[in-house]
Amino acid sequence: MTTLMADPMLAEAWTLSGSVALRPEPFGALAYHFGNRKLTFLKKQQLVDAVNALGDSKTVADALTRAGIPEAQWPAYVKALRGLATSDMILERKPS
């Protein structure tokens, strides 16, 4: 079995910001940050599942696994999570 742990973010612990509201949509979800007033569409339900799993997961890799995302697709999802991190939608937290 091959493990793609190339991106350090996969081993980090993150969580959805307390300033963000996620509204379910047919295409995935709409995320609104009340602090910086940024609006972001999450265009895949699996990404929404992963974001929701972040807070209860020890690592990002754990959250992606729980969301049922194949390892081959992790790089694309990590890229999306980094985009969410850039706009403070998700925040790094201390490992539990």
């Binding site: 007033r37 940024k38 609006l39 972001t40 569409f41 999450l42 265009k43 895949k44 990404l47 694309a76 999802y77 890229k79 999306a80 985009g83 969410l84 706009s87």
Partner: peptide
Amino acid sequence: LIEEVSIDGM
């Protein structure tokens, strides 16, 4: 997988 939208212009 994500699309950022600017709402300030509204």
